[in-house]
Simulated assay, not measured.
Amino acid sequence: MEPLDSDYEVVVREPNPRARFNWLYVFPILGGVWLLFLLSAAIFQIPITGVIDPIMGLMLVMFFVLAGLLFYALAPKAGR
């Protein structure tokens, strides 16, 4: 009987540096949802005056979140 070949190589998976950019897909999705909301309000003549101020505040906050995520995604790896 032959011995089983139990030698195995440990494969080290290095993280993909481009994977940090996946968080940025949230912003076009939110923009699309906002445009669909505005389009439906225009088509169905829905008053949205009460929604505009909170959304504009949210957009201001999301701008700073976008800037922070860009700094995070474009930062060099700490191990280099």
Rank of each mutant, 00 (worst) to 15 (best):
M1D: 10
M1Y: 10
E2F: 09
E2N: 10
E2W: 06
E2Y: 06
P3V: 04
L4Y: 08
L4A: 12
L4P: 02
L4E: 11
D5V: 05
D5N: 14
D5S: 07
D5P: 02
S6W: 05
D7I: 06
D7G: 00
Y8H: 10
Y8I: 12
V10N: 02
V10S: 04
V10H: 06
V11K: 14
V11Y: 10
V12E: 08
V12D: 03
R13N: 06
R13Q: 07
R13D: 04
E14Y: 15
E14H: 14
P15S: 12
P15D: 11
P15M: 07
N16M: 06
N16L: 08
N16C: 12
P17N: 05
R18Q: 10
R18D: 11
R18Y: 13
R18L: 15
A19R: 04
A19G: 00
R20T: 05
R20M: 03
F21T: 05
F21D: 00
N22A: 14
N22S: 08
W23M: 04
W23Q: 13
L24I: 07
Y25F: 05
Y25V: 00
Y25Q: 09
V26P: 00
F27P: 03
F27N: 04
F27E: 01
P28M: 02
P28F: 07
P28L: 03
I29G: 03
I29Q: 11
I29S: 09
I29K: 14
L30E: 07
L30D: 01
G31K: 04
G32P: 01
G32Q: 08
V33M: 10
V33L: 15
V33D: 02
V33T: 05
W34Y: 13
L36Q: 09
L36T: 14
L36F: 12
F37T: 09
F37P: 00
L38N: 11
L38S: 06
L39Y: 14
L39G: 14
L39V: 12
S40Q: 14
A41R: 04
A41H: 05
A41Y: 05
A42E: 10
A42Y: 11
I43G: 01
F44C: 02
Q45H: 15
P47V: 04
P47L: 01
P47N: 15
P47K: 06
P47H: 07
I48E: 01
I48H: 06
G50L: 07
G50P: 01
V51H: 09
I52E: 03
I52K: 10
D53R: 11
D53N: 09
D53C: 00
P54F: 03
P54M: 04
I55C: 04
I55Y: 06
I55P: 00
I55N: 05
M56N: 14
M56P: 00
L58E: 14
M59P: 00
M59K: 11
M59F: 14
L60V: 10
L60K: 08
L60G: 12
L60R: 08
V61A: 15
M62N: 08
F63V: 13
F63N: 06
F64V: 10
F64E: 01
V65P: 01
V65H: 02
L66P: 00
L66I: 06
A67N: 01
G68A: 15
G68I: 06
L69C: 06
L70E: 03
L70T: 09
F71Q: 02
Y72S: 00
Y72W: 13
A73K: 02
A73C: 05
A73Y: 03
L74H: 06
A75P: 00
A75I: 00
P76F: 02
A78Y: 03
G79S: 11
G79P: 00
G79H: 12
